[in-house]
Design a protein around this nucleic acid. Sequence first.
DNA 1: GCGAACTTTCGGAAATTTCTGAACACTAAT
DNA 2: ATTAGTGTTCAGAAATTTCCGAAAGTTCGC
Lengths: 153, 153
Amino acid sequence: MDDRKEQWQAAERLALALTEGGLQRMAARTLAVFLFTDQETVTMGEIADQLGVSVGSVSGALKSLLSVGLLERLPAPGSRREHYRMRDDAWATLFSTQNTLTQTMLHAAETGIKTTAPQDPAHRRLTQMRDFYQFMLGEIPTLLHRWQQQQLG
Amino acid sequence: MDDRKEQWQAAERLALALTEGGLQRMAARTLAVFLFTDQETVTMGEIADQLGVSVGSVSGALKSLLSVGLLERLPAPGSRREHYRMRDDAWATLFSTQNTLTQTMLHAAETGIKTTAPQDPAHRRLTQMRDFYQFMLGEIPTLLHRWQQQQLG
DNA sequence: GCGAACTTTCGGAAATTTCTGAACACTAAT
DNA sequence: ATTAGTGTTCAGAAATTTCCGAAAGTTCGC
C-alpha cells in the first residue's frame, strides 16, 4: 500500500479536526506536518514545501503556534535555518487554552448576574451558567494533573 | 444606573465568548438573548427585534441551536408563534460537543499510527497524541456525572 | 378551502478571514 | 563590506463565512 499518500490524507484530516478545535487553518495544517514528519525537527521551508504554500503563510502559522506553546524553536548550531519541533506537553497545552475560555464565560455570567434582580428568570439562568463554569474551572487542573501522573507511570 | 443597557452589553460580550467557543456568530447572539431575557420563553420575532436582525437570520440560528440540543421548542397552546427556551442541561450539552471533537482527534491519531513504522518518530508522536485523547475521552463523562451529582445536592 | 400570521429557504451582497507575493530585514560566511 | 540564504511583514487578492430580504411554504382559525 502507499503509506505516503495515506499519511498525507490522515494529516489533512487531522488538520481539519484541529481547525474545528479552534486553531486557524494554516496553523492546523502546520501542526499536522509536525506530527507526521519522520524527522525529529523541521524547518520553515520544509513545511512550505510539504504543504505547497508560501513561506509567508508558514511564518504566520509558526508565530501563532509558538505563542501558544505548542512548538519550540531549537538551537540551530551551524545552520542558518531555524529548526522547530512539537513540545512534549503540546496536547495538554492545547487543552488548557480552554481554561481561559472558561474563565471568560464565567466572568460574563457574573457580570450578567449583577444586572438582574434575584427573582428574575434571567438571574436563575445566569446563576446556573456561572455554577457550571465554576465547577469546570475547578476540575480542569485536576484532570491535567491526573494525566501527568499517568504519564510518569 | 441603566441596567437595561448594561445587560445588553453583557449579553453581547457573552455572545462573543460563545463565538470563540465554537458557535456561529448569530447562534451565539441568539443564545445570549435566551440567557438575558426576563421572560420564560421567547419567540423568533422577539429575538429578531431584540438583536435588530432579520427573522431569516434568526431562523437559521434557532435551527442550529435546536439541532445541538441547547434549546427546545415548547408546545404553543393558543398561539401561532413558536415558543423556545434554553434547556436545563444546555451547558453540559455545550461542553459535551467536545466529546465528538475528541473522538475525531483520537481517530485521526489512530489512523496515522497505522501508517507509520514503530521506530519512526512520527509513530511516537502520534502515540502520545492518541494516549492523551483516550485519557480525555474517558474522563469527560466522569466529569459530567460529577456535575450532575452536585446539581442534585 | 381561504386568508392571515408566522416560519423556512435560498440567491446574492457584504463583511470577514485567509493566503499570497514581493519588499524589506536579519544573519552568517567570505 | 558584500553577498547569499533565510525570516518577517504587509497590502491586496481570493476564498469563505455571514447576513439580509424576498419568495415560497406551513399552520391555524374562520
